[in-house]
């Protein structure tokens, strides 16, 4: 299998504080990866280092490309639409995506909208939190690319929307694309994860197949994750 992401000795400091150090992370193509860690552990920073939005030390290669502009063309990130004013209509946001991303598939986006029950004539200001997150997921998944980064897609939204989003991930993720989902609702996404990556102590604490946790420790992903903070499971 080939690697979609290779991070080598990546470190990041901000305001004289180390956020991440010595990150080595390799992800294979075609996987769904759960990026777990406490709030402020550096999950978002890790994603920002991959996209090039944060500037750190070390090398990051996405599908073999280390140059940031090229890297971006392989990455679809769940950006929160900060660049649009609240009065912007969804149609305009979609037009922007379609214009600037050559890999944006309008047909797939329409399917996603139907599935997630999105009304594209609405304005951004009139969207509920759950609806906005669905829109972001639809926009992110409508691009046909190699690496999808979903930053906390389930925070603060109801369980029905969560289920819909999980289903759309299974349905629309291209077979050979890799998806990284950062979250702390571990239990709900646990069944769809191939691997888990845990960020702790400013670095990658563990990276292992999800089923290997269940086989080796006989515990669920959530229990395993929590035990790391209590020092319950002895770790190699």
């Amino acid at each position: 299998m080939t690697n979609v992401l290779a991070m080598n000795q990546v470190s990041y400091k901000r305001n004289l504080k180390t956020i991440l150090h010595d990150v080595d992370l390799t992800l294979e193509t075609g996987k769904i990866i759960g990026l777990l860690g406490e709030n402020g552990a550096g999950k978002t920073t890790l994603m920002r280092l991959i996209t090039g939005s944060a500037k750190g030390k070390g090398t990051v290669a996405v599908s073999g490309d280390t140059v940031i502009a090229n890297r971006k063309s392989h990455i679809s990130f769940s950006e929160q639409l900060h660049g649009f004013s609240n009065s912007t209509k969804l149609d305009e946001v979609i037009a922007f995506y379609q214009r600037v991303y050559a890999d944006f598939d309008p047909k797939q986006f329409t399917e996603l909208c139907t599935f997630l029950q999105i009304d594209t004539s609405l304005k951004l200001s009139s969207l509920s939190k759950g609806m906005k997150e669905k829109v972001i997921i639809a926009l992110t998944l409508a691009r046909r690319t190699n690496l999808y980064l979903l930053d906390e897609p389930f925070s603060g939204i109801d369980s029905m929307s969560r289920k819909k989003i999980i289903s759309s991930i299974i349905k629309w993720k291209p077979e050979n694309a890799t998806m990284v989902i950062s979250d702390h609702y571990v239990s709900e996404i646990a069944p769809i994860l191939d691997e888990i990556v845990i960020v702790k102590d400013q670095t990658i604490y563990t990276h292992r197949p999800a089923d290997s946790v269940r086989e080796e420790f006989g515990v669920g992903i959530e229990a395993y994750y929590e035990s790391l903070y209590e020092g319950g499971v002895q770790h190699d």
């Binding site: 075609g30 299974i170 349905k171 769809i192």
Partner: peptide
């Protein structure tokens, strides 16, 4: 999709 699990699994 039916089982809400990963394709690889």
């Amino acid at each position: 999709v039916d089982l809400t699990v990963n394709v690889n699994t």
